[in-house]
Design a protein around this nucleic acid. Structure first.
Lengths: 161, 161
DNA sequence: GTAAGGTGATTGCTGTTGGCAAGCACTTTG
DNA sequence: CAAAGTGCTTGCCAACAGCAATCACCTTAC
């Protein structure tokens, strides 16, 4: 979107990569909703992103090094994969969610997961990032006792629907 | 900017309040640069915000409940004050800065503060939020041993200039 | 083998926002 | 009373967002 950074500030660098109304929503759906294909991302989200915006946003996130697109040709189903840089935006999403839950009206169904993440603390965030590394980067999942973090989130969400 | 929220998701709520290219930059300058007046914010930042954009952003942040403007009349110097909701965006800024420092080229001078914040952990973030509550909300500063967090940040920054 | 439907986009249109420069109405300072 | 400073507005143009339709191609069903 922009050619060169506005400054050398790390916060500004992050804002330039993530500070638009849609990029973080796409990352959220990939991480929490496990959506990896154009159509899934297009139709799955509550917010209703337009197809041209989604296309430009995916292209931008790939160029920014947060996603990788497999080499599907035109007409073939293309899969998007989170990079390590993409996975490391999870703490940003959690921080945003914490703020939103505290200061905005939100629906219980969509908030229960956020609440669980806050209660789980940094350990749960780290656990979820390990799961994403496993699913997206093929990194073996560290053995942990008990159900997966994503499984706990899903169960809590299901209990409200 | 927008009339009603796109969804009840807490992450989306935060993105709608903070997910534009300038709001977080303004908050950063108020928190880390202690800038509280239009002119300070206009001329102080590296990124060079335009005056009309700053005006609209300040108005928006006041309407969103992150800032309060004192009742200065036209021509008078108006002071902006962080609300509790505004102060609580600090963890978001830190998370963004952490990501930016890890995944983008940044200048050492502007990064040292971020590095210190990361090393200081959540305790240092909480400490800084207490200082902001003291400066902006008049809440008495809890007594802590040693120099203020903001002082440590300033000293580290000065050592590089 | 061929039609039907799915794939990730692209295009054209319109309204909104961003960025730049200048100016405004007013207060404060010297 | 002039000069400088205050927050903010206006015009202008380029870029982006949102919406609907469409494209070129692949996959599946019969």
């Amino acid at each position: 979107m922009r050619s060169e950074p506005r400054s050398g500030c790390p916060i500004n660098a992050a804002v330039e990569a993530l500070g638009d109304p849609w990029s973080l929503i796409v990352l959220r759906d990939m991480m929490f909703g496990d959506r990896r294909y154009f159509r899934e991302l297009l139709t799955g989200s509550e917010e209703g992103i337009a197809s041209n915006v989604l296309a430009s946003r995916l292209k931008f996130l790939v160029a920014a090094g947060l996603l990788v697109r497999d080499d599907a040709t035109r007409g073939q189903r293309a899969r998007y994969t989170l990079t390590e840089a993409g996975i490391q935006t999870l703490p940003v999403l959690v921080a945003l969610g914490t703020w939103g839950r505290a200061h905005r009206d939100t629906s219980p169904q969509l908030t229960i997961r956020q609440q669980l993440m806050e209660e789980g603390g940094p350990e749960m965030v780290a656990e979820l990032m390990d799961e994403l590394r496993s699913r997206h980067l093929g990194v073996p999942l560290p053995t942990r006792r008990g159900p997966l973090a994503s499984e706990r989130l899903r169960a809590a969400y299901e209990s409200l629907v």
